[in-house]
Simulated assay, not measured.
Amino acid sequence: MYEERPSRLDGAVVWTRAAGPAAPFSVLPDGCMDLLWSDGRLYVAGPDTRAYVPENPCARYAGVRFAPGDAPVLLGVPAHELRDRRVDLAALWPGDRVRRLAERVGEAADPAAALEDLALRHAAGAPRPDPVIRAVAARLGAGWPVARAADAVGLGARQLHRRSLDAFGYGPKTLARVLRLQRALALVRAGAPHARAAAEAGCADQAHLAREMRALGGTTLSAYAASAKSDTPQPSGSSTTA
């Protein structure tokens, strides 16, 4: 069973997935990065440009999903270096420290809460998220064209692209596509017909949404809608690791 809740860390989400029998599932791109704990190990899930299928769907997971653009500042690594990757936290932070942190999370009665505490403590000593990057993510998430979002924050096209690679892992056009798909899928999960979901999310038509679903999600809208009706909700973003 997958569950999530808002984090005490601004803009983040805390989520868990219980161990036990489970069918294979896909994690769809959402513009986010995650700090994860599973099987006694700490990982980082980088920003995805395609659906990710965990190798072990039966494992127990806890995660903190950061708002788009926030994780690179907190973790100290440009997002593009982790694009479409799952990386041990020990590759980014000192190994001895990561081992101690992993043990602390694993021994906790609530690993997700312990992982959230870890993120909060680290964030307290890290630079603040870039307000310009947050403004870009908010505008693209609301469906603004990339050029309009760039103008609103005072960045040229090249500046925006360069800063987006570091913050989101890819350019603003890719982020806009990912966030548009997520808007559409939220409507599909709420029961909206596919044509309406496409129109309200900003797609040209239902066929456009179907193509984006295949390209980014690796599946069809009908298959996704069927899985959304199951009694085991699935994460919509970069929420698991191998």
Rank of each mutant, 00 (worst) to 15 (best):
A142T: 00
P72C: 11
G125T: 06
D96L: 08
V178D: 07
F66E: 03
A190R: 14
P127R: 02
D88T: 04
S164W: 02
A157H: 07
P145Y: 04
A167S: 12
A135D: 07
A186T: 09
H80P: 06
P172A: 14
D96H: 06
E103C: 05
L160P: 05
R163H: 15
H122M: 12
G125K: 03
R65M: 12
A135P: 04
A71S: 03
A71L: 09
A157L: 02
R99S: 15
R85D: 07
L75Y: 08
R99M: 09
R97D: 13
G69Q: 00
H161Y: 13
T174K: 10
A67S: 08
Q159N: 09
V178H: 08
L74K: 08
V77D: 02
R162L: 12
D96Y: 02
A113W: 06
R97I: 05
A108K: 03
L187G: 15
A67Y: 13
A184Q: 01
L82P: 07
V136Y: 03
D117Y: 05
A113F: 05
L179M: 12
T174I: 05
R86M: 02
A142W: 00
L120R: 12
V188W: 02
A123I: 02
P68S: 14
R65P: 01
A112V: 07
A108C: 06
E103K: 05
H122P: 00
D166A: 15
A149V: 05
L74N: 09
L165E: 08
L120E: 02
G95R: 00
L118V: 10
G125V: 03
H161M: 05
A149G: 08
V178T: 11
A149D: 03
V105K: 08
L165N: 07
L160R: 01
A142I: 00
G125E: 01
A112I: 03
A112C: 05
A186R: 09
T174F: 02
P72S: 11
V98E: 06
R180C: 10
R100G: 15
R83A: 15
R104H: 13
G171F: 04
G69F: 10
V64G: 15
R128M: 06
P72W: 08
A137S: 13
D96G: 10
A112Q: 00
